[in-house]
Each structure stands twice: as C-alpha cells, then as structure tokens.
C-alpha cells in the first residue's frame, strides 16, 4: 500500500528537479548570451551578416502580412463600427491597433517562424556535427561568435521591420478605406494622423525589440542544446518557434501593462 504514494512523490520530485535544472540552465545561457553582447571580442562581419539575414530578408514576409492585416482590419472595424454608427473612427482605430499591437505581434510571429527556426536549425546542425566543439578548440567562444551577433541583430532589426510594417499596414487600410469603404483620401489621412500619439508607435517599437531578442534567444538556446542528429535538430527547431511564439505573446501582455495600465 505504501508503494503507490511513494512512487507518486518520487515522480513529483523528479519532475520538479528536472524543471528547476532546465530553468537554471536557461538562465545561465541567457546570462552568458547577454555578457557576450557587451564584452569583446566582437565580430562586426558576423553582425553585418545577421542584420542582413534577420532584418533585410524578413522584409517581404513582414511587409505582406502587414499589408493584409491593415486591409482586413479596416474592413472589420468598418463593419463593426457601423453597428453603432461610428464608421468615422475606422482610420484612428486602425492606426492605433497596428502600431500598438498588431504590427509588433504579427511581425514577431512571422519572424519567429522564419528567423527563429533558421537560427535553431543552423546552430543545432553545428552542434550535432561538432562544429561548436571545433569552435571552442580553436579558442573561439561560441557565445561571442554565434549567439551575440544573432541576439544583437534581432533586437536591432525588429523595430525597423515593425516601423516599416506599421507604415505598410496603415497604407493597406487606407487602400481599402478609400477604394471600398468610400472614405475621402484626405479625410482618411487626417483621421489617421490626428489621433496617433508618439507613445503608440514607441511602445510598439520597444515591444518589437524585446520580441526580436526573445526569438533569437530561443533559436540559439534550443539549437545549442540539441542532441542526436537530424531528429534532434528538428525537435530543436520546433521548440524554438513554439516557445518563442508563446513567450512573445506573454511578453506582449506584460509590456502593454507596463506602458498603458494606469
């Protein structure tokens, strides 16, 4: 009769211990990553390469999703606000929605899928083919050589991507507003501009930077920890994207609370 509760407690104990060990490992990884971002040696060539890979090449994806998001947002808000005859608010609601929330979150999720997966796959492959071990034997710190350039590049380029995405998204809404919903172009632009506050945009860009950091960190972490060949790299890639996406939405709430809750 004693066996069952004992087994039960053992399971709880083991699970707790594993969870704590994983948390500790992740915290140590993050600390090493951050330290590598501020302590030399730096690798400007690699940073440049990552700025291009993470930022520039994400432009089409972010631009297109922002465009469609703006379009659908204009349509839905128009239809919704028509119920209480508030159609004139469409432009201002769209721009606030995009700059504060949808711009950073949708760009973040797209970049998590594109860049987070790529980082995890690349670093994971380097891990399982012993390239990371080789780096260390050649007196090069993998955190400075691999992790730091990705963290920095993602944290810098995400706000730029989101700013561009914001503009494209508002433009998408404008196209629908003017061509389909019958707003006069000047009125639409006026309404967009008049109700927009600096803080709407700035908060979105700060979010974007945090999201970029989370995405790159998850990609690096899961890639770095991957074990066991192709399957391990595949699992690392999935974990990186899923975890980054969840953390990103969680961070989005916390940051919104920080910026706007009174």
């Amino acid at each position: 009769m004693l066996a069952f509760p004992l087994q039960f407690l053992t399971t709880i104990g083991r699970t707790t211990r594993l969870a704590l060990a994983a948390t500790g490992q992740f915290a140590r990884f993050t600390a090493s990553g951050l330290r590598a971002c501020v302590q030399p040696p730096f690798y400007p060539r690699l940073l440049g390469h990552q700025l291009l890979a993470i930022g520039y090449y994400s432009l089409p994806v972010v631009g297109m999703t922002a465009m469609f998001t703006g379009m659908v947002l204009a349509l839905q808000i128009y239809l919704g606000s028509a119920r209480f005859s508030a159609e004139s608010a469409v432009a201002s609601i769209v721009v606030i929605g995009i700059t504060r929330e949808l711009g950073p979150v949708i760009a973040g999720l797209m970049v998590a899928g594109r860049v987070g997966a790529a980082i995890a796959a690349e670093i994971g492959t380097m891990r399982v083919t012993e390239q990371i071990d080789a780096l260390e034997t050649l007196s090069t710190d993998p955190f400075r050589y691999l992790v730091a350039p990705r963290l920095i590049a993602a944290a810098i380029t995400m706000p730029m991507l989101v700013l561009i995405g914001d503009i494209i998204g508002v433009f998408g809404a404008y196209v629908i507003g003017v061509n389909k919903l019958g707003f006069a172009p000047t009125v639409y632009i006026h309404n967009t501009w008049d109700f927009l506050e600096v803080m709407d945009v700035v908060s979105g860009l700060v979010k974007a930077s945090v999201f970029g950091f989370i995405i790159a960190l998850m990609g690096c972490y899961y890639g770095y920890q991957s074990r066991g060949g192709a399957q391990g790299v595949g699992a690392a890639t999935t974990s990186a994207v899923v975890t980054a996406s969840i953390l990103l939405i969680g961070a989005d709430y916390l940051l919104s609370e920080m910026f706007f809750a009174q």
Partner: peptide, 13 residues
C-alpha cells in the same frame, strides 16, 4: 591554445 583537434566528421565550418 596548446591543443589542436581533428574531429571524427572533420567538423568543418
């Protein structure tokens, strides 16, 4: 710095 290593799969970057 004292060490050099040839890895099993060569581990070229």
């Amino acid at each position: 710095r004292k060490f050099g290593m040839l890895f099993q799969s060569a581990a070229l970057f």
